[in-house]
Computed example of a mutant assay.
Amino acid sequence: MQYLTGFGPHVVILARMRRLTLAVLLVLTGCSSSTDDGATGFTAIDLTATPEALAAHGDMLVIGTRPSDHPELVTRSKDGALGNARLTPATPYGKEAHWYGITSDGVTITGVGGERGGAHGNVRWSAWTGDTRQIVEKPQAFSTFGGYGAGELIGPARTPQGPLIIGTWQSDKAGLDIAMWTYAADTWSRQPSAGTVLESSQDLLRFPLAVTQNGDGVLVAGWQTGKGQVSAAVWQFDGRTWTTAALPDGDAALAARCWDGTCHVVGRSKGKLAWWTGTGADWKKLTTPDIPVGDDQVLAAPVPVNGTPTLFIDHDGVKLVSEKDERPANGPTGAVTAAERAGDQVFLIAGAHLWRLGG
Results as ranks from 00 to 15, higher is better:
residue 3 Y to S: 11
residue 8 G to F: 06
residue 14 L to P: 00
residue 18 R to S: 11
residue 18 R to H: 02
residue 19 R to N: 11
residue 21 T to Q: 13
residue 23 A to H: 08
residue 24 V to Y: 03
residue 28 L to T: 04
residue 31 C to L: 15
residue 37 D to W: 12
residue 41 G to M: 15
residue 43 T to I: 07
residue 43 T to E: 15
residue 49 A to N: 08
residue 53 A to C: 11
residue 54 L to C: 04
residue 60 M to T: 15
residue 60 M to K: 07
residue 62 V to C: 07
residue 62 V to R: 00
residue 64 G to A: 09
residue 67 P to V: 10
residue 68 S to V: 05
residue 71 P to G: 00
residue 72 E to D: 11
residue 73 L to N: 00
residue 73 L to S: 00
residue 76 R to D: 00
residue 78 K to C: 02
residue 79 D to V: 02
residue 80 G to C: 10
residue 88 T to E: 11
residue 91 T to F: 04
residue 96 E to Q: 13
residue 109 I to T: 07
residue 110 T to W: 14
residue 116 R to K: 13
residue 116 R to I: 01
residue 118 G to M: 14
residue 121 G to W: 04
residue 128 W to V: 05
residue 129 T to A: 07
residue 131 D to V: 04
residue 133 R to P: 00
residue 133 R to V: 09
residue 134 Q to G: 03
residue 135 I to R: 00
residue 136 V to A: 04
residue 142 F to S: 13
residue 146 G to R: 12
residue 147 G to C: 10
residue 153 L to E: 04
residue 159 T to N: 13
residue 162 G to H: 10
residue 165 I to K: 03
residue 165 I to P: 09
residue 166 I to K: 08
residue 166 I to R: 06
residue 170 Q to H: 12
residue 174 A to F: 11
residue 188 W to L: 08
residue 189 S to N: 13
residue 194 A to K: 09
residue 196 T to L: 06
residue 196 T to A: 05
residue 199 E to A: 12
residue 205 L to T: 07
residue 206 R to W: 03
residue 208 P to T: 03
residue 210 A to V: 01
residue 210 A to W: 14
residue 211 V to M: 09
residue 218 V to W: 03
residue 222 G to N: 11
residue 224 Q to C: 08
residue 225 T to V: 12
residue 225 T to Y: 07
residue 227 K to P: 02
residue 230 V to E: 15
residue 234 V to R: 04
residue 234 V to I: 10
residue 235 W to H: 05
residue 236 Q to P: 07
residue 236 Q to I: 06
residue 237 F to N: 02
residue 240 R to M: 12
residue 243 T to R: 02
residue 247 L to P: 06
residue 253 A to M: 04
residue 256 A to P: 02
residue 259 W to Y: 07
residue 259 W to S: 00
residue 260 D to Y: 01
residue 262 T to V: 13
residue 264 H to C: 09
residue 265 V to I: 14
residue 268 R to C: 06
residue 271 G to H: 07
residue 271 G to F: 08
residue 272 K to Y: 11
residue 277 T to L: 11
residue 278 G to L: 06
residue 280 G to A: 11
residue 281 A to D: 15
residue 286 L to A: 15
residue 294 G to M: 13
residue 294 G to P: 10
residue 295 D to G: 08
residue 296 D to I: 08
residue 296 D to Y: 12
residue 299 L to M: 14
residue 311 L to N: 10
residue 315 H to D: 15
residue 316 D to N: 15
residue 318 V to P: 06
residue 322 S to P: 10
residue 325 D to K: 08
residue 327 R to G: 01
residue 332 P to Q: 02
residue 334 G to L: 10
residue 342 A to D: 10
residue 354 L to P: 02
residue 356 R to A: 09
